[in-house]
């Protein structure tokens, strides 16, 4: 053992007898807890810590503002054709130039953005809504009903959605936002239904739900007071991840000519139109493609941040 000062106990320098009065435990000390923050405050705090996620959110706000005000800011309407200005170069009149029919490309890009984002966001919400109800019902009843409902999900999710879109547009004889949404949501809700079901089943076996049952709380009350609040975070995260994938699907379908038809437009439709003139007018491809990429990036970064922020297992 290393040599130690043994005279320490007699060293009285700077010490007064008052310092050696037994005061015991200060009971109020027990009250000092971790800072008082609610679930959402805590989640927001964690989200703010994630710089990439905040960047994604800011990017998204900028894109949203442009999508909302872009078509208004432009000097020409997105539908207004002017053959004389065909392939007008980029200048202060036509900020992004003009397309083959002389339509203002700046206005068209943001008008297309509206369509893309509306499809992405509303599609994600519809999928989440249907998926939650379906998954919730399956997990609530359990047993045979549950396995029957899950088999339906498996069948639906095994159908390639491209096929569904083609068949639907043939059958409805219409190509547009509604057909696209219908086609994508027809099978798109299955993922979230599975997720909600498995989360609810896990929650149902948790000790706090058991405690509520033993307290005599009615099953429906357990669903509304325990199961749903504890699933909301998961659903929000799923929606944020769902939006970019829907935007991409829409772009892909429009690119193939199965989506939005002129004069209405979307980012995918713009890309599709631009590919024929890509070699000598690359900027017509560049702007919508960049918008798709940035939107997807923004949603994905934000989704990552939200997932980390809303996951209760990450709490300390």
């Amino acid at each position: 053992m290393s040599p130690m000062k043994t005279d320490w106990i007699n060293d009285t320098e700077g010490l007064t007898p008052e310092m050696f009065v037994t005061v015991g435990v200060d009971e109020s000390k027990d009250r000092v807890l971790r800072p008082h923050i609610s679930y959402w405050q805590d989640a927001f705090r964690r989200f703010k810590k994630n710089k990439l996620a905040v960047f994604g959110a800011i990017l998204l706000v900028i894109l949203m503002l442009l999508v909302i005000f872009g078509p208004i800011m432009a000097k020409h309407s997105f539908e207004e054709t002017n053959i004389a200005e065909s392939y007008h170069p980029m200048d202060k009149d036509y900020w992004f130039g003009a397309d083959k029919l002389g339509r203002d490309y700046f206005a068209r890009v943001w008008q297309g953005g509206r369509v893309s984002i509306i499809i992405g966001v509303s599609g994600a919400f519809i999928c989440a809504f249907v998926g939650c109800i379906y998954g919730g019902i399956a997990s609530y009843f359990g047993g045979r009903i549950d396995s029957f409902m899950m088999r339906i999900v498996e069948i639906l999710s095994s159908i390639p959605y491209l096929l569904v879109v083609i068949l639907l547009s043939l059958w409805l004889d219409a190509k547009g936002i509604k057909t696209l949404l219908l086609a994508m949501c027809l099978t798109g809700w299955t993922g979230i239904a599975r997720l909600v079901r498995s989360q609810m089943i896990t929650l149902r076996q948790s000790d706090y739900v058991l405690a509520a049952k033993l307290l005599g709380v009615k099953p429906l009350k357990i669903v509304t007071s325990h199961l749903i609040p504890n699933t909301i975070g998961l659903i929000i995260v799923n929606i944020t991840f769902r939006v970019p994938s829907l935007i991409f699907s829409e772009a892909f379908l429009s690119f193939l000519g199965l989506g939005i038809q002129s004069p209405e437009t979307s980012w995918g439709a713009l890309c599709s139109a631009a590919q024929t003139v890509f070699t000598f007018k690359p900027h017509l491809m560049f702007f919508p493609a960049l918008c798709i990429a940035l939107t997807m990036l923004a949603f994905t970064l934000m989704g990552d941040g939200l997932r980390d922020a809303l996951d209760p297992r990450q709490r300390k």
């Binding site: 000790d207 706090y208 033993l214 005599g216």
Partner: peptide
């Protein structure tokens, strides 16, 4: 007839305030 659980972290709903947790049974009985 009530029960106390082993894992104190798992037996409290993370989304409920302590007051709500404690009064959960009161709203029933």
């Amino acid at each position: 007839c009530q029960m106390i659980f082993q894992d104190p972290a798992a037996c409290l709903d993370p989304r409920m305030s302590i007051g709500t947790i404690v009064s959960e049974g009161l709203t029933v009985h």
